[in-house]
């Protein structure tokens, strides 16, 4: 396991507060609890997993198994902004793969990677469900539709910290 990767000290205070809302030993709470913990820490560091396993009275191997089974759990820190490129069918036939390629090129990372400045994390998702706007992507909670390769630079610029504006707030 990659536990030793997380050399930085993890402050578990936030987790302890969270745990109060989850009954000790109730295994069915594992996934919601992992989601909540990831919401707080932005990823799932090993000490957090260990504490959760302890709280729900299950072996760490089971927790680790679940975390690695589901695509939306992350064991390593991600960029501040998450870009999710849709690889749905409608996006595929309308040029979605080229949008991903353009993002990879401009950010200098591959799908699943984080930029060195930790600004962007890039991944693909099965389908955002905004097929009417294909090709699409999400940055944090915002959906961007009718994308073209020529619009990517402008969109990325609008997210970068120089141009402020918290994307998460808009819904």
């Amino acid at each position: 396991m990659e536990a030793k990767l997380n050399v930085e000290e993890i402050d578990l205070t936030m987790l302890e507060e969270l745990l109060e809302g989850y009954e000790v030993g109730d295994e069915s709470l594992l996934i919601p609890l992992l989601q909540a913990a990831q919401g707080a820490y932005s990823y799932l560091p090993m000490p957090v997993l260990e504490r959760i396993a302890d709280h729900l009275k299950m072996p760490i191997s089971r927790v680790y198994g679940v975390v690695t089974f589901y695509a939306q759990f992350y064991l390593t820190p991600r960029g501040r902004n998450t870009i999710r490129v849709c690889r749905g069918t409608a996006c595929h036939v309308r040029g979605g793969p080229r949008i991903l390629e353009e993002l990879e090129k401009q950010l200098g990372i591959k799908e699943g990677g984080t930029t060195p400045d930790r600004e962007f994390f890039l991944e693909t998702v099965a389908c955002i469900g905004a097929c009417g706007l294909a090709p699409t992507m999400m940055i944090n909670k915002n959906t961007y539709g009718h994308l073209t390769t020529t619009r990517i630079a402008e969109i990325l610029d609008s997210i970068r910290p120089e141009e402020e504006g918290d994307q998460d707030e808009k819904q």
Binding site: S28, L29, I31, V66, F69, Y70, A71, F73
Partner: peptide, 26 residues
């Protein structure tokens, strides 16, 4: 309400139930 965690196979009913029970959705 249970939110999925990104596994297509959880749309299969026995996988979905495993997921609700807190396990991998196989």
């Amino acid at each position: 309400v249970m939110e999925g965690a990104g596994a297509f196979v959880c749309g299969e009913e026995t996988g979905l139930m495993a997921s609700i029970e807190g396990r991998s959705g196989r």
